[in-house]
């Protein structure tokens, strides 16, 4: 079985996003970019499945500008076997990403697709579910544990009131939650080795998939800043102010 993993290049989670002066979006020139943290978890899970003997090959797929090759190289350094970049400089929304992943899956025929639950830039939380809808593969979202059981998978999911588990047939799509695993760091020799692993670059136009969308960003603004308040001297002062000034207790 092959496992396909989607990895997105995003603004590093430690960098504070700055809105561009013309309100057209976020300043991404000369800032640190990294693999979406949920996608590191996705790669790690795929590698563990391979290491457990349940898969032969882990393929990392990214959609984005040429620099996304770095993100794929990170996945290869972690241990993925090869990479595919669908190259475009245009904004690609979740539905188009899902369609492009479907395009890759039709060729590669993986038994599993693992994606992050959410990209930390658009905060959409849509791609995995959309992929499931357009392929008919079952979805196991917000996964915190994945076990092979029978012909399919038993997946434990993080939901609002706790945990639940479902059984899904394969092929299936999994979206990763934070507690699924702790991603490994790429070791230096593996970073060197990753440079020699195959990375196929496909032009968006050659996929025949349309990324057109009816959803346009009109403008992007800074959020309202919250002003820092005061430092109180004691617990008694805190309680007094919450009671008599803010009147919230």
């Amino acid at each position: 079985m092959k496992v396909l993993v989607a990895v997105k290049r995003v603004l590093d989670y430690n960098v504070k996003a700055r809105v561009k002066a013309d309100k057209s979006g976020i300043e991404l020139a000369n800032v640190k970019m990294s693999m979406n943290p949920f996608d590191e978890i996705a790669i790690e899970e795929a590698l563990r499945i391979k290491e457990a003997g349940k898969a032969e090959e882990v393929i990392a797929v990214s959609i984005g500008p040429s620099q996304s090759q770095e993100t794929i190289r990170t996945a290869l350094a972690m241990g993925a076997d090869r990479g595919i970049l669908i190259e475009t400089d245009d904004e690609v929304q979740p539905l188009a990403v899902a369609k492009l992943l479907k395009h890759v899956a039709e060729k590669e025929e993986p038994g599993l697709l693992i994606v992050g639950k959410q990209a930390i830039d658009d905060d959409a939380n849509q791609t995995g579910q959309m992929y499931s809808a357009i392929t008919g593969w079952p979805q196991a979202t917000f996964a915190s544990k994945v076990e092979f059981e029978g012909d399919g998978l038993k997946v434990t999911r993080e939901v609002d009131s706790g945990l639940e588990s479902i059984q899904v047939a394969m092929p299936a799509v999994i979206t990763t939650d934070l507690r699924l695993n702790e991603p490994r760091y790429a070791k230096l020799p593996n970073i060197m080795k990753a440079k020699k692993k195959p990375l196929e670059v496909i032009a968006l136009a050659d996929t025949g998939v349309s990324i057109e969308t009816g959803l346009k960003t009109v403008e992007v603004n800074e959020p309202e800043e919250r002003e820092a308040g005061i430092i109180v001297k004691s617990v008694d002062e805190l309680v007094d102010r919450l009671r008599n000034e803010a009147k919230v207790i």
Binding site: L11, L215, V220
Partner: peptide, 28 residues
């Protein structure tokens, strides 16, 4: 397209939603 986590309705086709962990607010 899906429109996630809408925090404001501007009109029947225009919505506001936070992106980048709320460090930016998009009108779509």
């Amino acid at each position: 397209a899906g429109i996630s986590d809408v925090t404001e309705v501007r009109s029947s086709d225009t919505f506001v939603r936070p992106i980048y962990a709320g460090n930016a607010i998009a009108t779509v």
